[in-house]
Structures are given as structure tokens and as C-alpha cells.
Design a protein around this nucleic acid. Structure first.
Lengths: 339, 339
DNA sequence: GGTGGGTGCTCGGGTATTGCT
DNA sequence: TAGCAATACCCGAGCACCCAC
């Protein structure tokens, strides 16, 4: 029996011998209720297992206690999911419920449909997790002033946005290679158009430029270890000379190492590699991977804090950018020869 | 201006010059509306950008078009998140909205609070993703007949449950080692109490028993590569003799390989290893990992199909159990010596 | 008597007003 | 004047019922 009618305000009022107005006052912590009546009402609430109907409340107050999360899915689903889970946990702490929906760029439905799925719920605010910039401007228009926070990609100039210091991190990673004497450096990037890929590529290019160097080559993968392996094979087959690779993420670096090993090339003796992400397992690769890490953990709480401030119409908090950290392990050495 | 009042049924009715009932009929595709009025109403709807208020609708129909997902978080968060995303996508296809909330066993709040967060939304059904059995019986009671589907762990005898064939998969993995002549086999398990850990351990033990063997040792890790590394060190320090390890997942296997390598032990020459999961990157480990894979992809669609059937009070679909597949690569060889 | 369409109550809870103690 | 009851109406939709042709 799913739907035995649940107790309502009126039932509580009747049991407690008060008016429904008083019950409402107790529920919302209003004044003008004596201790005695309050406890009477509370007892009745517990006895009946009363729970307010959120839909009814939302209907009249016009403000639901739930936030929407829109995931615009792309290659790196797992990354988005981590953010989602953080956002959800933080939202819960802040007494918000989380409604999620995803939008697949390759599907027939329009972004508008996905956005309206959330808007129709009258969410109090929205967190958008997207790896690409495209379409985000329209999104702002569609939502028409609704509190909004973007994770990763966000429209140009939009104030509420949480992103990684990709460019700086990539710069530092590349710099590490350069400071070891490497000059012939290849970059494995992620899919073009993803903000992470593009920013990291930019950081790489800036570091090279500051040394007056040209990249040997920039190869585009899809973040997977498989693609790193494939790119490694392609690179070796091309016959281009290089002494180091800066990989856009750790997984591609793993695939690259695999492909080098198959051709009897060793890391770091023959080729030096720097990764990106510092996955939990990267230190157990062979060799342990030198990589660059960014603290992800505050992503969710920052997003929710920004959203809450907007919802409450307060001044949004200002966050310091996250400082990327270079983690030096065993996949880099000084240049020996130009193979 | 977030809340310029949005158009309601009445506004549409006024503009179209009909009553709100007629508009409601058009919206719900009821009969007894002439083509002419229908198109008039539809025009008005578009013109006003009208969107029905889901809360109002839920209030009167007592059935919301949203399902709840409760994530009871444990070690393997990423696994749960993958299921979540599938569930969410499938739910969307079926025109349901997804509300999620998580419950942390180590937190002060009770499971009841988490469940009620969802129940208060009057969700039409609930998907529970839990790695542990504990507390799931109460959950069934609390929800009082609400359509329910459990992913991974589920209460004893509960009919609606999606789980992996862990026991069988682990049996096959162990069997592979045995058929190569290994007799001194160690098992690295996940945290005790997790259904995945326990089932895999059982499969391992059954395989050993059928060969009349005792496990050399069963070591408990936490699924992480770090713990696999630690367990590897512990094992080597213990001086116990072994020729093979069946690791409860691929990541711990990676850590184990790392620890063996540090002691100049090679895989598979000195020690054979079978993993579990077949991560995308496992084929790029050194050596490429022999492991066992289960197809995860239908998890979400199965869960939603089961839930939908319950919600619609239809006969739930019956699914064949997923057949685990042994993926043979280079981390196992025949026994040579007992080190 | 089947179509087409309007009136009015309902869902569950918020709130403003009045009035009594 | 604090503490409460009683009344009444609102939110936005669904629907039973009624009344026209």
C-alpha cells in the first residue's frame, strides 16, 4: 500500500487541539507560540509521523529547497561525476535537495529541453557542469536570472564559475621538463574544444614560447589510456625526434609508457614524461609518474557557497585560485641524447 | 529579475479566450476539445512560454514524475557514481526526473533522515545504491510499499535487485590460477562487509575448496592501489610462501605489482596475478593484467525498467545474470618454483 | 445522447486579518 | 500586549459534475 494517506497539517492540528495556523507557526519557528502549545504540537507531529508536503509548500512560497545540477556530458564523465557527488553532499548539508539531469550534445533533444526539466521543478538555483564552452551563453539567457554557478567551462565573463588553474599547472609541468634540459618536447592533449584540453595546451605553449621553442608536435587524444598508447605508436612511427612528452593526463601517460616499452624504450632513460592529475594510482605506475596535481576537493563546497549566496541575495564569497602542485617522481630525468 | 511571475493556466486561458479547464484538457491530451480551440490554446501556450507547474500538478495527482536515488556511500564511490549516471540517463529517457541524496554511514544523521529527504519529495520510486547490506531491511519498512530497486547490496530475498555475479567471476579468476598449476594462492580482498568483497572472497574460497586447498592468506585492503602496495609489502615481510595472488580489484593489483617490483620480483615470472574489473587502463599496466570483467553497462537501464514496472504495476522484466568474462593477458604464467 | 466546454471544489500548506482571552 | 483560534483566501493545476448544443 504505497499511498495510505499521510497525515497533514490539519490532522496534526486536530490531534493537538490547536488550529492549523498554530501548527504552521511551530513548523516555521514563528513567534507567538507558548512553550506549552509548542510541545503539544511537536508531540502530535511525532505521533502522527507528520511530514510537510514539500510540493504544497513550494507552491505557495514559490521557492523550493532544491537545486538543479545539469551535466553536459562529454568525454570525461567521471570527472563530472566527482563534482556532482561533492555538490550533492554540500547541497544536502545546506538543506537543499539535488535534482540532476544530463544533456548529451549528440542527442536529438535540445539543451533547452534539459534546462526546462530543471526549471519546471522551480529549482532555487542551478549548477552547470560542462567541459565545453558552447551553448553556455544561451543557457544564461534561458534561465533568466536564476542563480547559476558554472563548473569547469562557463560563459565568457560570467562571474560565478569554478575552474581549475589548468594553464598554470600545464605551464609548471612543461617548465619542469624544460628545466631538466629538454628541448624537443611533445604534448599529448585531450579532445579539442574541451576547456581542460585547450587551457593545458595553452600553458604548454606559453612555457615553450618563453624558452623560445617550438613544440615538436601536439597530438590529440581522448584522455583514455588507449589513446595515449595509440598516440605513442603514431609518434614513434612518425620518426620525429623528441626527448620528452607532457601528457594532458595521467592515463594517456600510462598508455604512452606502454607503447614506448614495447619498442624497448625506457622511461625516463630514453624519454621523460610528465602527466597531469596525479591519480591515486599514478605513483604505482612503472615508473612512478611525475605529474601535476590540483586539489579538487573544494569544488563542490565552493559551488554551493556561491549558489547559496546568490539565492540569499548576499555577497558571494571570493575564493583564491587553487595552486597546482608539481609532484616529482621517477618519470623524468635530465636529457642525455636526442634519440 | 529571477521571479517575474510566470504564466499560469489562467493566463493561457484568458489569452485564448477559454476556461482553464479547456487548457488543462489540451495539456493532458484529453478528448472533447475541437481542433480549433486546441490550436488556439496551443498558440497561447507558446506565446506566453507557458510551462506547467510540476509542484501544483504533483499536489493534486499525488504522483510526481521523479524518482529518488539514495547513495549509501562507501569506499567505492566511483562505482556508485557510474551507476548513478546510468540510472539518471535512463530515468530521463523514461521521462522521470532524478533526485539524489547520499547517506554517509559515518555521519551523525540517521538513514531515516536521508530516506525522508526523498520521500518528502513524493518520489514515484527509489533506487538504492549500497555496497553494504546493513540497514537495508529497515529501509524497506520505512518506504512502506514504495517501488524500490536495489543496486549491488539488497535485503535478503528482496525481488528487485541488480547485482554483479561476483562469486562466479571470482571463482573463474581463481580457477585460472589453479589451472596453471598454482597452489599457494593469496587473496587480496576489499573491505569486509562490502557485498563485492564478501562475494568475491567466497568465490575464491569455493574454487580453492574444490581443489582441496587452503588459501595461503586472505588480506584485507580498501580497493586502493595504495592498499595493494601496502598489502604486498606486508605479505613479503611475513615470509609466507606463495606463487600467485588473486586481487579483488585491478587497482590493488597495480599496487601489488609495484611492491613486488621493488623487491626485484617480477610478474608473472615470480608471481602470477589475476585482477578484477578490467579497467580501461589495466591492459596498459606492466605487465598487462589478466583480469575478469563484467559488463556494467546495463545496470542503469535494468534498474529503471524494474522500477517503471513497479510504478506502473506491471509484471517486472526478468533479466539473465551477467556472464563474467575472463580476460587473459600477461600477468599469469605456469608455476615454476615455490619461492 | 454524444461533443464541446464552463463552474467550482480539491490537494496541503502559508499568511493576513480579526477577535477573544 | 502576548498567545492563540477562527476565518478566509492564495498558490497552480486536475477533475467531477453540470450545462449547453
Amino acid at each position: 500500500m504505497p499511498n495510505q494517506r499521510r497525515a497533514g497539517l490539519h490532522d496534526v492540528a486536530k490531534l493537538a487541539g490547536v488550529s492549523h495556523t498554530t501548527v504552521s507557526r511551530v513548523l516555521n519557528g514563528r513567534q507567538y507560540v507558548s512553550e506549552k502549545t509548542r510541545s503539544k504540537v511537536e508531540k502530535a507531529i511525532i505521533q502522527l509521523g507528520y511530514r510537510p508536503n514539500l510540493h504544497a509548500r513550494t507552491l505557495v512560497t514559490k521557492s523550493s529547497a532544491s537545486i538543479g545540477v545539469l551535466i553536459i556530458s562529454d568525454a570525461n564523465l567521471v570527472g563530472s561525476l566527482k563534482i556532482l557527488s561533492e555538490v550533492s553532499v554540500e547541497a544536502t548539508k545546506a538543506n537543499f535537495l539535488t535534482s540532476i539531469t544530463s544533456f548529451d550534445r549528440s542527442s536529438e533533444e535540445s539543451l533547452k529541453d534539459a534546462v526546462f526539466r530543471l526549471l519546471d521543478q522551480r529549482v532555487a538555483g542551478m549548477v552547470v557542469i560542462s567541459a565545453r564552452q558552447e551553448g553556455l551563453d544561451e543557457l544564461v539567457e534561458m534561465t533568466n536570472g536564476l542563480p547559476l554557478v558554472f563548473c569547469k567551462a562557463g560563459p565568457e565573463g560570467f562571474p560565478f564559475r569554478i575552474s581549475l588553474e589548468n594553464e598554470l599547472a600545464a605551464f609548471r609541468a612543461t617548465h619542469q621538463l624544460l628545466s631538466l634540459g629538454h628541448r624537443k618536447i611533445v604534448h599529448f592533449s585531450g579532445p579539442k574544444g574541451l576547456i581542460d584540453s585547450d587551457d593545458r595546451r595553452r600553458g604548454f605553449e606559453r612555457a615553450m614560447r618563453e624558452f623560445g621553442l617550438e613544440p615538436v608536435q601536439i597530438l590529440e587524444g581522448d584522455w583514455s589510456a588507449d589513446s595515449g598508447y595509440q598516440l605513442g605508436n603514431d609518434l614513434l612511427a612518425s620518426g620525429k625526434k623528441f626527448t620528452a612528452v607532457f601528457s594532458g593526463n595521467d592515463k594517456m601517460a600510462l598508455g604512452l609508457i606502454h607503447s614506448l616499452n614495447q619498442k624497448s624504450l625506457e622511461v625516463p632513460n630514453d624519454v621523460s614524461i610528465v602527466g597531469f592529475d596525479d591519480l591515486e594510482e599514478s605513483k604505482h605506475y612503472r615508473p612512478a609518474l611525475t605529474t601535476v596535481r590540483q586539489d579538487f576537493t573544494e569544488f563542490g563546497s565552493r559551488a554551493i557557497a556561491m549558489l547559496q549566496a546568490q539565492i540569499a541575495q548576499e555577497e558571494p564569497p571570493v575564493f583564491k585560485p587553487l595552486d597546482p602542485e608539481l609532484v616529482i617522481r621517477n618519470s623524468c630525468s635530465e636529457v642525455r641524447s636526442v634519440s
